[in-house]
Design a protein around this nucleic acid. Structure first.
Length: 490
RNA sequence: CGGGGUGUAGCGCAGCCCGGUUAGCGCAUCUGGUUUGGGACCAGAGGGUCGCAGGUUCGAAUCCUGCCACCCCGACCA
């Protein structure tokens, strides 16, 4: 398990924060619980956005944008929804400041809003208030819209990427004529997320249903993907909600079906956030820093020259320019680090910290021998390759690294997933080594809450692929038909 | 909001208990030189309202009071 990036080894949280800051991804801002995403970190987010956006378009969705502010009255229309979000809302009460006459400024009491505005913690309400005007007939359906946005949730405790006060995300909001179609959409999108997590982020996930306790506020069914982090905790990496007719009823969105009958519209919503970056960081990093999957790495290949004299440098640069061009022609992003104020060793360490998948080094010896030193971030191994074949080699290697990172994470998950039947094993495993626990559950809220109280573990999901089998609830001993996924979580 | 901890140069810290020269160290920065195949070295230089506001004292980074911010643990959560 990766743990010792700094001398603060006793604490995985600090290790994580340290890594985020040192790898130049983000830092805390002056605003409570908010973060500054730095250019290198944001470049990863842009890769994530591009990858997801492509998948959304392939599944028939389009992008749109809705307001940041939500009138308080909208918010309160859906009872469960307001219940779920009320305690973490930022509220706008005034629209103007004025001089206090002492060189400072104060909120102008004359500029009090008649109705307060909520800074969106999620957009169901403002969007369904809009959809009301867009939908009259079954011919107006389905509506398949996604929005890329920022949202604000005033959490008590925050953590870079994992739980910030403001975060970036996408939220899909769809409207359908039938229950079946909406449920299909809910399922389709959790599969899109799972594909992205596994293929692009190289992170294996478990798809499943949330228990009633863990459902989104206002949803009839919440589907989720759950990933295992290297410290043995689970991370909810994405959710897709079947909202039934709850929001349509709250906002009075009815349509005329083919037979001329009025009915309420069926809804889904689904989202992933900058938390995905936290998943990549905690899922793959090692003691040398970040390990980025090639498909999401802003820099896939870094080239470092090694030289003593200016003549050597120009001879190396000449070769590098060609290699860079060839690689870029194959769609690979390459950085040539020709700074002369850092030694090669410093640069090696720096790009390892930043998780760049492949590093090439070229020095006088290579010029003589017609070779390039190629090092891979995932295994930290290096070898000499003929300069003639370097392009093909890199292309293949990036693929191999992508696969290897996934396999490594998968092996880790396998080794840290436990099928347990005894309560004493359950508590023991949670403390050391942690991880995923597959255990029987009697299906009741009461048992789930008791387990949470006693162990801090929750039901992460009821996996789709959990086979039917006879068993007894690990806590109550009552009969159960399948195992569910328990873990402590972020 | 409860418990613990920390605020001293861009970053990381020592000094505080036991008040007293000019507030110090490492990294980073700048200049010059030597270096460069795994986080270079030497010499020199610049950079501080010691978190903020009061108080005690001849004298406060150090003691006292209040406030603020951040971090960790809990409750809450994508």
């Amino acid at each position: 398990m990766a743990k010792f990036l700094t001398n603060r080894e006793e604490n995985y949280s600090q290790w994580y924060n340290d890594l985020v800051i040192k790898a130049d991804l983000a830092e805390n801002s002056a605003v409570r619980g908010c973060m500054v995403i730095k250019p290198y970190g944001y470049a990863i987010w842009e890769k994530i956005q591009a990858g997801l956006d492509k998948l959304f378009k392939e599944t028939g969705h389009v992008n749109a944008y809705f307001p940041l502010f939500i009138p308080k009255s909208f918010f309160s229309r859906e009872a469960a929804h307001v219940e779920g979000f009320a305690k973490e809302c930022a509220v706008v009460t005034h629209y103007r400041l004025k001089n206090d006459g002492k060189g400072g400024i104060v909120v102008d009491p004359a500029a009090k809003l008649e109705e307060e505005l909520i800074v969106r913690p999620t957009s169901e309400t403002i969007i369904w208030n809009t959809y009301k005007n867009w939908i009259q007939s079954y011919r107006d359906l389905p509506i398949l819209i996604n929005q890329w946005a920022n949202v604000v949730r005033w959490e008590m405790r925050t953590r870079l990427f994992l739980r910030t006060t403001e975060f970036l995300w996408q939220e899909g909001h769809t409207a359908h004529a039938t229950r079946e179609e909406a449920m299909e959409e809910t399922m389709r999108m959790i599969n899109v997320y799972a594909d992205f997590a596994e293929n692009s982020m190289a992170l294996p996930v478990i798809k499943g249903y949330k228990s009633e306790n863990e459902r989104f506020a206002g949803a009839l069914e919440t589907l989720a993907i759950e990933a295992l982090m290297q410290d043995g905790k689970a991370l909810q990496a994405g959710t897709s909600h079947f909202l039934g007719q709850n929001f349509a009823k709250a906002f009075d969105v009815q349509f005329t079906d083919k037979t001329g009958k009025l009915d309420f519209v069926w809804a889904t919503s689904w989202g992933v956030s900058t938390r995905l970056m936290g998943a990549i960081i905690m899922g793959h990093s090692d003691n040398n820093g970040l390990v980025l999957p090639p498909r999401l790495a802003p820099i896939q290949v870094v080239i470092i020259p090694i030289f003593k004299k200016p003549e050597q440098f120009s001879a190396i640069s000449e070769k590098v320019v060609k290699i860079k061009k060839d690689l870029e022609a194959r769609g690979i992003s390459v950085k040539y680090d020709d700074r002369d104020n850092n030694t090669p060793g410093f640069k090696f360490a720096e790009y390892e910290l930043k998780g760049v998948p492949v590093r090439l080094a070229i020095g006088p010896r290579d010029l003589e021998n017609g070779t390039v030193e190629i090092a891979r971030r995932d295994t930290l191994t290096k070898q000499l390759i003929s300069i003639e074949t370097i392009t093909d080699h890199v292309v293949n290697l990036l693929d191999e690294i992508q696969k290897n990172i996934y396999t490594k994470a998968q092996t880790f998950r396998k080794e840290n997933t436990f099928y347990l039947d005894k309560w004493e094993d359950f508590t023991r495993v949670l403390d050391e080594p942690g991880g995923f626990i597959m255990a029987h559950w009697d299906g009741t809220k009461e048992t789930e809450e008791k387990i949470k109280e006693e162990t801090k573990a929750t039901i992460r999901c009821i996996p789709f692929d959990s086979p039917e089998e006879e068993g007894k609830c690990i806590y109550s001993g009552k009969p159960s038909t399948k195992r569910v996924l328990f873990a402590r979580s972020y």
